[in-house]
Amino acid sequence: MKRLMNRHPGSIGRVFLTLLPFLLVVLAYAIASDIRLSENPSDKLLPSLTSIGSAVERMAFEPSKRSGDYLLWVDTLASLQRLAWGVGISALLGLVVGIANGVIPYVRANLSPFVTALSLIPPMAILPILFIVFGLGELSKVVLIVVGTAPFIIRDLQSRVLEIPSEQLIKAQTLGASTWQVILRVVLPQILPRLLDAVRLSLGASWLFLIAAEAIAATDGLGYRIFLVRRYLAMDVILPYVAWITLLAFIMDYALRKVSIKLYPWFHGLSKQGTAA
């Protein structure tokens, strides 16, 4: 008999093992909800799966009585827009400042300690300042995401640039490259897959800051809705919203990984055709 560490599940077994914990959680929830509801039919804490289902139908597929909007989609669109702006600006800042810090000693001496200091500011502590300065609109929410994630991405990419073997940078110079060409042809293409990794890792934080900002001041958005219906203990709305946010985050993470494999096969040890090297 092989050691346990050397035994691998087959493809059907793998799917089963993957789904199992999810199914168990749903099952446990259904049982617990059943027990509570049989004791007190008006209990709001663990609504039955059917009432969650009808809440989803109400939020996603029926126009709201007050505004006529399909609330789930309006909220999703609003949140995703804020997230995209925030993450996009952070990624761009991270790329530009991270590479400049990594490649050019003068910029590094100038900016690196500053970025480190910035990254130590707790972003939530300056949220009131953002609301005061940028108002309660979209801008302050996007800025919160940027403040919360850009320093991390910058610092990560800077150290990734510094990890590129100096042999490569010297080699490029012996081939006649200028600083700009080294950045463009040697550093940037090797940093882009690392940027995707850094963005993946910072997505959790981006969602956190988004929902926090929406909870405090917004008129739509996934975070806004969750905190709004909390007043009525509407667990039947909160739970599917949380599941939906989780699913969205998962899809983003998965898509970023696929994009990285597609665009940067060498980074994943694959050949140009995408087969294992």
Binding site: P165, E167, Q168, I170, K171, A172, Q173, T174, L175, G176, V186, P189, Q190, Y264, W266, F267
Partner: peptide, 16 residues
């Protein structure tokens, strides 16, 4: 500069 070429023991080529 391009007058002087070099080959190191490793990391001499661009992995990407």
């Amino acid at each position: 500069d391009s007058d002087r070429g070099i080959v190191f023991q490793k990391y001499s080529v661009f992995p990407h």
